[in-house]
Design a protein around this nucleic acid. Structure first.
Ligand SMILES: [Zn+2]
Length: 159
DNA sequence: ATTTTCAAT
């Protein structure tokens, strides 16, 4: 148990040069309004596997986490999901995720990240991917203390 | 800091 906490602190530590974090953690919270005063609540965490980034791994679990998301007959249920990721999504995951979210308007997703993944170059694909996510309705935010040398507003704030 | 990164050895 203590080892797990130490591992989480290590991987979620938002330092500028995070040497050795060769994996990504994703903690999630899944909620659905089931009454005027009641929310369903589920949570858990995932790690990337070899050959599968954790964001796309999450999508594979989505059907089990969100029964009815794609409909019980006519009715599609609405879910709200929050991610807490140690790295921000890469360009490919951002692109796939944005496309998925556009096809699933009854899913609300917000993302908190500890560190920006390959976002140093002003014109990099990773930055553009985050902007795509924002246009798809999800805004990744840095909600830990600001990363040294990287102001929070390098996160997508244009268009 | 000329630092790192969902590894590759
Ligand atoms: Zn990815």
């Amino acid at each position: 148990m203590l080892d797990m906490i130490k591992r989480f602190i290590y991987h979620y530590n938002n330092m500028r040069w995070a040497r050795g974090r060769h994996e990504t953690y994703l903690c999630f919270v899944v909620k659905r309004r089931i009454g005027p005063d009641t929310l369903s609540f589920d949570f858990g965490h995932l790690r990337n596997r070899t050959g599968c980034h954790v964001e796309l791994l999450f999508l594979r679990y989505l059907g089990a986490l969100c029964p009815g998301l794609w409909g019980y007959g006519e009715t599609k249920l609405t879910y709200s999901i929050t991610w807490f990721c140690s790295w921000s999504p890469c360009a490919d995951c951002s692109s796939k995720l944005a496309q998925f979210l556009r096809q699933t308007p009854n899913l609300r997703l917000r993302i908190f990240v500890s560190r920006l993944y390959f976002c140093d170059r002003e014109d990099g694909l990773e930055r553009e991917g985050l902007r795509m996510l924002k246009r798809a309705g999800v805004c990744p935010v840095m909600d830990w203390r600001p990363v040294q040398g990287v102001p929070p507003h390098i996160m997508p704030n244009d268009s």
